[in-house]
Design a protein around this nucleic acid. Structure first.
Lengths: 223, 223
DNA sequence: GAGGTTTGGTGACCAATGTCACCGACCTCA
DNA sequence: TGAGGTCGGTGACATTGGTCACCAAACCTC
C-alpha cells in the first residue's frame, strides 16, 4: 500500500528519489493520496490553504477571473508539480489569489500545511523542489504579462495553438475554452479562427482545430 | 568598516538580524557594497546572472518590453529586497527575462552567485528571506496579469495614482513615465489624465499630478 | 426521434486603445 | 539669449477587441 504510493510519488517527482529515508517516512506518514474528478475545484480565490496538493497524474488549471466573469489561465500544474501558489500562501500566510481546478481525473498527494515549513528547513531535496517550482512559475507569469501587454490576440492564439497538446496536428479544444485560456470572449476567438481558416492555416471542426500550415501560422505571430 | 556595513545590512533587511555569526561572516566576506547611479542597468533581458544584488537604499524598477519598445513595470525592488528574479535564474540556470534598472541613487550589496545555493542549504534565515521574496513577487505579478487583462487603462491609472508615493497629494511623474509603468503610450495617458482633470479629479502640472478628489478618483476605478 | 444542451457562426455596433503628426510651452545650460 | 531637449496637448484615424442578439447545426440523453 505505502510501497505503491511511494513508487508513484517517486515516479511523478524524480527529485524525490534523491530524498533520504527520513523525508520519505514523514511524507508517507503525514500525506494522503486522493483521487479528484475532472473540474473539481482545488482552490478558490481568497482561500486559506490547509494542505499542499502534489499532482501524481492528471492536470489542473490555475486561473484568475475578472468582474465580468472572463477568465485567463495563469499556468497549469502537471504531473510532478504542485500548487506552489499554495505553498507561497502557506509560508507567507497570504490568501490564495486565484482559482485552481482539475481538468481531467487527477490524483493528488495532499501534504498538510503544518509540515511544509519544517520540511523546508530540514530537507535540501524538498527545498530545491519547492524553490524551483516557485521560480519557474514566476518566470512563466512574467512571460504571460509580456504576452498580454504587447501581443495582439491573434498572435497569442497562434502561440497557444503551436504550444498546445495535439493529437497529430489537431488541437482538441472548444472556442469557449480557448477564450478562457486567453482571457477574452468566445466571439473574438471564433472570429480570429475563422480568419485563419479562410487563409488556409487551420481547419475547424466542432470541438477541435486542425493545423494545416504550421509555418504559415507561426509567421502570423511575428506580424 | 565591516561593522558599518553589517549595521546597514541589518537595518535594511530585518530578517538578517536573526542570522547567526556564521552566516554573517560569510555574507561580509564574500559580498561587496556598491553605489549605483540613477538609471543604471542592473540586468538586461537574457543576462546570465553572476551576483545577486540586495538593495540597501534607493530602488530599482523591474520591467519588460515589447517589440515596439513599449515598457511595462513588473514590480520594484526597494530597500531590503533583492532582485529575486536573479536568484531564480541563478538557481535554475535560466536567462533573466526582464530588465532591472535603478531609479534613484542606489546602494546595493552584491552577493556572488556561487555562494547562494550553499547558503540556501545551510541557513534557515537566508532560505526564508529568499523564499518569501520569490513568493510575494509571484503574487504581485499574478495581480498584474489580472489588472492588465481585465481592467481598462483609466482604472489602472487610478490604481497607480492612489498607490503611488506622494508629497502631500501630489504624484511626481511624467506622462511618459506613467505610460511605461502601465505598458501603454504617452498620448493615451495624457488623454485619460486630461479627462480626469476636466472632471475636477486631478490637476496637472508639468511633471506632476495633484490629486484633488481622491474618493471621486477611486470611484472611477470601480466603473 | 424529441427536446435540451453545447458549440460555433454572424452581423452590427461601439468603446478602447494605439499611432501619427504636429506644435507650443518650458527648462537648462553654455 | 539662443539652441536643443523634455514635456505635454491635440486632432485625426485605423485597428482591435468586447458585447449583444440571434440562429443553426451538432450532439447527447432519455
Amino acid at each position: 500500500m505505502t510501497e505503491k504510493l511511494r513508487a508513484k510519488l517517486g515516479a511523478a517527482v524524480p527529485t524525490l528519489n534523491e530524498a533520504g529515508e527520513d523525508l520519505w517516512s514523514e511524507l508517507l506518514a503525514s500525506g494522503v493520496a486522493r483521487e479528484l474528478p475532472p473540474r473539481q475545484f482545488i482552490r478558490m480565490e481568497g482561500d486559506h490553504c490547509e494542505h499542499l496538493p502534489l499532482v501524481l497524474s492528471g492536470a489542473a488549471r490555475v486561473y484568475t477571473m475578472g468582474e465580468s466573469g472572463r477568465e485567463i489561465t495563469l499556468y497549469r500544474i502537471e504531473r510532478g508539480e504542485s500548487c506552489i501558489l499554495t505553498a507561497s500562501c502557506i509560508l507567507n500566510e497570504l490568501e490564495f489569489p486565484a482559482f485552481a481546478r482539475t481538468e481531467t481525473e487527477t490524483e493528488v498527494f495532499l501534504v498538510p500545511a503544518a509540515s511544509l515549513q519544517g520540511w523546508f528547513d530540514r530537507y535540501a531535496v524538498w527545498r530545491s523542489y519547492v524553490l524551483s517550482l516557485v521560480s519557474s512559475r514566476l518566470a512563466d507569469v512574467i512571460g504571460l504579462v509580456k504576452e498580454v501587454t504587447f501581443l495582439r490576440l491573434d498572435e497569442r492564439l497562434v502561440e497557444y495553438l503551436i504550444g498546445a497538446p495535439k493529437q497529430g496536428n489537431t488541437v482538441t479544444i472548444t472556442h469557449a475554452a480557448l477564450a478562457s485560456e486567453l482571457g477574452t470572449s468566445r466571439e473574438v476567438v471564433s472570429r480570429i479562427l475563422e480568419s485563419f481558416e479562410s487563409q488556409g492555416l487551420v481547419s475547424l471542426e466542432r470541438g477541435s482545430i486542425r493545423i494545416c500550415d504550421e509555418s504559415g501560422l507561426a509567421a502570423r505571430s511575428g506580424k
